[in-house]
Nucleic acid binder design. Structure first.
Lengths: 124, 124
DNA sequence: GATAGTACTTTCCTTTTGGAAACTATAGTA
DNA sequence: TACTATAGTTTCCAAAAGGAAAGTACTATC
């Protein structure tokens, strides 16, 4: 019992788990990571974002963007164009999330391959 | 209008966004990433997991573990000990998530530092 | 025999999430 | 004048998420 506990009572593990939790607190919610991913390819306007992030509604998009802005991950710029447009962009700090996004891209691509292979195996 | 569209209509971007979404489909939900993080330090029993993943209830833990098992990310092993115990462990495939977890750990640690510094600045 | 620990499941209930549609406001186009 | 597009907000409602507590079942311990 005592030896078993040691595996995770370790302070480094605790700290790491807390770090993951801290990250999730900022990126939590169904849409935040998808929004940041879309913005990682360049600035986008509200409507463009809604088209890129498949399935999101205006209300959610608006809400999530506000939260991301509060956390300093994105910047909002109102352009004085004919019909008013607003550009959203990753802040310098927001760009530090790029590594996480990249790993998710890699994993996702691999995962899709894996699923595809599994289907082929089954049909053989 | 046409030039603007090009930024994101690019097939590579679309593919990457889809990859992120695929990853999120597997890791979605409030607890999955936290559970996987905890298991990344070694196998854990149900009760140990519940203690490690702060705030999770038995129902949620049970549900999330089932989903992770279905997706082949963790393995469940029932030990025939005095009171029955069940060990959960990352599968080989589950371990491929390590990069994502690591990046989240790094970001989280940095983020906490940043917040701390901001507090110091304000009180100065 | 009662209590505690293991690992869940089930039930009941509240909170959160999230979507659709309508609405505000401005401006260009047909 | 009507319709479109911009960027939202607001309202109303349904569905999903999630928690607390009790229940199940087995065994060991006091």
């Amino acid at each position: 019992m005592e030896t078993r506990e040691k595996t995770l009572t370790s302070d480094t593990c605790k700290e790491k788990l807390r770090a993951v939790q801290d990250t999730l607190d900022v990126l939590g919610g169904k849409w935040k990571i998808a929004i940041i991913s879309a913005l990682s390819f360049g600035k986008l306007r509200f409507m463009e974002l809604q088209r890129e992030v498949e399935g999101i509604g205006a209300k959610m998009l608006s809400k999530e963007l506000r939260e991301l802005e509060i956390n300093g991950l994105i910047s909002r710029h109102v352009c004085n164009t004919k019909p008013i447009t607003v550009e959203y962009e990753l802040s310098v700090y927001g760009k530090t999330l790029q590594n996480i996004i990249n790993e998710m891209i890699n994993w996702g691509i691999n995962h899709r391959e894996r699923i595809k292979e599994q289907c082929h195996e089954q049909s053989t």
